[in-house]
Design a binder for these strands. Sequence first.
DNA 1: ACACTATTCCAATGATGATTGGAGAACCAT
DNA 2: ATGGTTCTCCAATCATCATTGGAATAGTGT
Lengths: 217, 217
Amino acid sequence: MGDRDAKNALFDQFARVGKALASGKRLELLDLIAQGERTVDALAKSAELGLTTASAHLQTLKQANLVVTRREGTKIFYRLAGDDVAALFALLRTVADDRLPDVRTAREAYLGDDTEAVSREELLERVRSGRATVIDVRPAEEYAAGHIPGAVSVPLDELADRLAELPADQEVVAYCRGAYCVLSHDAVRLLTALGRTARRLADGMLEWRLAELPVAV
Amino acid sequence: MGDRDAKNALFDQFARVGKALASGKRLELLDLIAQGERTVDALAKSAELGLTTASAHLQTLKQANLVVTRREGTKIFYRLAGDDVAALFALLRTVADDRLPDVRTAREAYLGDDTEAVSREELLERVRSGRATVIDVRPAEEYAAGHIPGAVSVPLDELADRLAELPADQEVVAYCRGAYCVLSHDAVRLLTALGRTARRLADGMLEWRLAELPVAV
DNA sequence: ACACTATTCCAATGATGATTGGAGAACCAT
DNA sequence: ATGGTTCTCCAATCATCATTGGAATAGTGT
């Protein structure tokens, strides 16, 4: 047998990444950061956390080297250390969803009634043939940090007001952050209630990027 | 914005999986369980943990549904809930290794001086052309639970005694549990010290299985 | 029924993590 | 320099987790 202390040290090092992923708040911050770099203040507001609490969690993520920071004046921007981190995050959620019945329950409670989904392939095909309008319903800054080519930014809060911009005779496909983002679900429910034909991308920008599909900036 | 409580509940559910992965001891248990089902007692001994401590950690893994149990008489066998869990575990280690310099340090300290490695493809090619003898240096019960086709079980403890079984004019390729398993490193160092030509598989059975290469039982 | 084995449950202790407000540090603008 | 902004550090409190020995449970063999 190899040296016990050295083995413990190695596995404790692996556990640092596990520990970073061991809090719902941190996972929510990661979910936001995965959409593009954000400041501490913006992240705290989006995740509805106190500034110091958010900062403490971000420090934890930073010490696990899952995120890196960039300073610009008084602001500090956090972004993912790499796409391997996004892949790990996505796999964690998939495993949780596949293994834990409570995740399915919580997901259904959060996302609401299921709406019709289209796959990434179907979306690409619809865009190519001009048969659908693709809208990005995330906040504008996330769209700016990278979006599906051809998609129009229509943040969910503006959707009802900007309905006229969307062709009434065409299907609308909405997408947002990822498989557990509520925005596209809300968008489809809103559009359907207003008499439009709408569907949502089954997952979102996170999975799109991980599938190495083209991203526009 | 969606319902805050529901969103917190969802992310806290995801975090259950993270929490399960947030301990070096549990990761070591997972590493062992990934090689095939084992009893609590066997796992406690292999990981050098107290029985109740091991049981408590196994309960944690079980409550996260990363492992499942099977009873046989008085014994309870733990095994992985699925290969998705193995993939998550492997990705966690890869990300940790790529991101945390301390992991590299701890790995080098544990595995010792680096020995020459062959890729999975090279191993397959060498076996096919009969140019190498492949030995599985894990404990016999792990070999029994599944091994590389054509490999011979020579647990590390028996290697020195069973040297005569290995053709002296052929290269030996040793493999063990995975990329962070010390056994194949020790085997190569031992064989080289005894004048044999030996190399090790770059990773191990965990990665072999995840690559969906054939497994013999 | 009884002893025996394997494992979990329980309770107690110590260790680690989360959250918060307030102070401090880095930077910018005037 | 001074004041304003953004964020981190510090210290205190509370909550959660790890570890342990001993009791309890489930099953086997006599």
